[in-house]
Amino acid sequence: MTISFLLLAAITIIGTAAAMSLKNLVHCVLALSLGLVGLAALYMQLGAQFVGFTQILVYVGAVAILAAFVIMMTRSANPTLTNAASSFRASGPLIAVLVFAVLAWATISGTSAQPILTAAPEGSVGQIGTALMHRFVLPLEVIGLLLTAALIGAGILAMDEHRGTQHRGKQ
């Protein structure tokens, strides 16, 4: 329980909690980026540098920017409606607190007796690349296929379906 862990955990918690509680949606995405950067720094502190940089590239660089674009494209004409009272407004935080209580109880009662390994494991980029090309080559191919399908599917879903018929009508 070092000071750096506490600092990074505070950054992550503040960022994500602000992302889930702020009213302005663009502020939410900016706070989310802060929380994800804190999480990436936690990965690096744990010795997984490659996963930390992947987290920054994928989440801060792509997912948060994509969410910001979609928020700006779907800016509602009536912003007060997005904060209307819902059926889960009272029970949602209660459910979350209960889930956290159960998980924290399981963590504290389950891991206290385990020995702690002090030696930091080796997880260099070269080792990860070798493992991806040897032991995990089939999951790598499947992920490539999944990403291609997601790319094509997202493009088709986001395409304006009326535009094609208009062009055809003009011809």
């Binding site: 994500t16 889930m20 459910i95 979350a96 607190v97 889930v99 956290f100 998980l103 924290a104």
Partner: peptide, 9 residues
Amino acid sequence: AFLFSIGLA
């Protein structure tokens, strides 16, 4: 666990 609870809420 706390991050999960924030996301769930």
